[in-house]
Design a protein around this nucleic acid. Structure first.
Lengths: 221, 221, 221, 221
DNA sequence: AATGAATGAGGGTTCATTCAT
DNA sequence: CATGAATGAACCCTCATTCAT
């Protein structure tokens, strides 16, 4: 009896391990090639598994991609909350927050791209066709909601940091929504800096530049 | 209904330049699907031409894409120069410039996204393989240079406006390179605002928000 | 352990078998249609595989064709050497040699025809463009050399037989190069007898007729 | 009245001229590329006509090819008859005949190839499918007969020359059918000498070598 | 459980042929 | 008559997915 239980336990562990391992391999491949150009062959090779084995752990390429995005968002969100709860003044929270997001973007390159690409592409991945009808038996119909919630929560944290900064007198009494959006835009814009290799700042440099300008502006007083 | 309208549209172009028409159709498709997911079938359908006909006007999918990028850049660059040469003070030049770029991004739909997000694809299109060696008899060998130049010129204009503003005392003595990059990032970031439909600002609102924060910062003095 | 080994062995066999099987099917199709008119669909149908499966075994149509040519030449060459090394007088060696080549031509159906008739195609297959410059990253760059060598070796054997016959006094002191070429031409000419169904000799009849005329000529002395 | 007649005459002339001109252009293209690789675009370019115009003079690529073959055969046949009727001794007739055929082969390269290619390919061109049923409305159902007759007539002339030579005592009393076939094979074999560029004899050299060996054989007496 | 083998459904591209002026 | 424009049908090849062991 105990034997059986242990065996199952072991199995479950192995399965979980393999799942994580494959996801990591897939992440590498997606990061290098983007979604369309990444092939299951490449993922299988990276994971040192056979292609068919991937299908024992995931239903489809889409599902793998989805899992990675959601895992990824969950992690980022968790860390953002941790930062928010630290006993720091707003400026320092914001510094850490920007640092987090920028590293996150850098690390999760390809997914971030897809997220910010056109809705339709994301929806294609989500098995939803463009007229609004689900394509055949959509296997993950509610997932976009989960995705959406996670995304919104991230921006709520940004806004909260700013609001606290205003309350504490560190920041001017700016429109919080606007300021939050501007900060998000700055980070996004720094990340998606185009195909030209010049002007590549390190994460730390980026953070300081963003902060300097976001705090001070350029106007001469 | 849309069909009929498009057919008529095409009729009107009868003896005129189908090239432009196809490019526009392709632009729509690319904007919606990105490069890899866009098919020649889809482009043909959008243009109301047969797939084979596309090949009367362009050698390949790559070439179509390339033409769109370059046309697009050329137009934007021309307008940017016009603005720069207007006799305005820096703040107003900057306002017009931001307005131009934002409308341009909006008009070219999310097509611009591909430039900023699908580096791999872009390199494939430019006949450059990912290990850095050019592949076979590239039919557009100098085009990356042209592309690069255009892109750089755009950022030179941004920098020039800022530099002039500093000289005239309108702006603080900030690092011009950094300021230029921050401004570009702001614009890009505003445009690539992700799949969530909330917080969609009009172009004019966007411009004012960008200006306000870029000029003043959020720090309380 | 032994089981595993045997399984692997079996697998290896099956793979080799399939490869051979596909090559045979392709040979039939090429023989019937020539290179350009032969389609991968036809080869797949002949081999009772799906078209996609062919690409598990070969990279391209070119490669299939190439493999067939080289296999074919290698076999013929091996047999020709065997004959040459037999302890026979020149006339009998020549008889066997002619018989070999004719059966070989017959067995390889009119596939051989492509070698002798579709030079342009052959050069395309060898990744050599028609103006004489090699195209892109040729995957079989040395193969033409291998091919050429094999072809030349065949004619060297012909010449050797004739030279030996002259030395032994069986043949007149003719120009060896010319005689060898004439013999080769006779065999080719017998094989490529045109679309008219008449005058089809059996291999044996062909051999005897060739020998009779090649030895005696038609002049009255 | 006379005007009308002249106009028609002129028209007829021009049409005939254009036809001939296109045929010549097509011949050049076929000669260089073979049947499959030759495109209507290439023929149109060579003829300096538009592609559509070709279709005013011929129904299809096939028909063009067919016309060329038949014209070509007719010409060759006519010249062969002329030679046969010359008051020469058999050896000289044969020399001229071989010369004619070899030059003809050289000049009509690609067609000769097709003629000696597999029956099925030729039949495909003749609009006859492989099960023996004509494909749709075969536009030239009897043409193969015309073709066949011409081919047979050529070999009849060969045989006649040999037969006359035997009668006059110039040649030994060989089997005429065989000798004729051997001669034909020699010529074909010389022509289809494979993809290796070596051993390319001029027509005149070829003729002399063929004659020498065909007359004398290689046996030491 | 794991995997090598197999494939259906497309992808971009070409070309003989027809259409419309 | 001549032709530029248009296209359907096919071609070679790829890849996410399923099958069979």
């Amino acid at each position: 009896m105990k034997n059986t239980y242990q065996r199952e336990e072991r199995e479950r562990h192995r399965r979980a391990d393999n799942t994580a391992f494959i996801l990591q391999a897939a992440e590498n491949v997606f990061a290098q090639w983007g979604y369309s150009l990444a092939t299951m062959d490449a993922i299988a090779a990276e994971a040192q598994f056979s292609k068919a084995t991937l299908y024992r752990y995931f239903h489809s390429k889409k599902e793998i991609f989805l899992k990675i995005i959601l895992n990824s968002l969950a992690t980022a969100h968790r860390r953002a909350v941790e930062i928010y709860e630290k006993p720091l003044k707003a400026e320092d929270k914001m510094r850490e927050y920007i640092q987090l997001i920028m590293s996150y973007y850098k690390q999760k390159e390809s997914f971030i791209k897809i997220i910010f690409m056109e809705k339709q592409v994301l929806m294609k991945i989500f098995n939803i066709d463009l007229k609004g009808f689900p394509i055949k038996s959509a296997k993950h119909p509610e997932i976009p909601a989960e995705f959406k919630t996670k995304m919104e929560n991230m921006s709520k944290i940004t806004n909260a940091i700013i609001r606290d900064g205003i309350k504490s007198g560190e920041f001017r009494n700016v429109n919080v929504q606007h300021a939050g959006f501007v900060l998000g835009a700055l980070i996004r814009g720094f990340h998606f800096s185009g195909p030209l290799p010049e002007k590549q700042f390190t994460v730390n440099d980026s953070v300081e530049i963003i902060l300097k300008f976001f705090f001070n502006g350029i106007r001469n007083k």
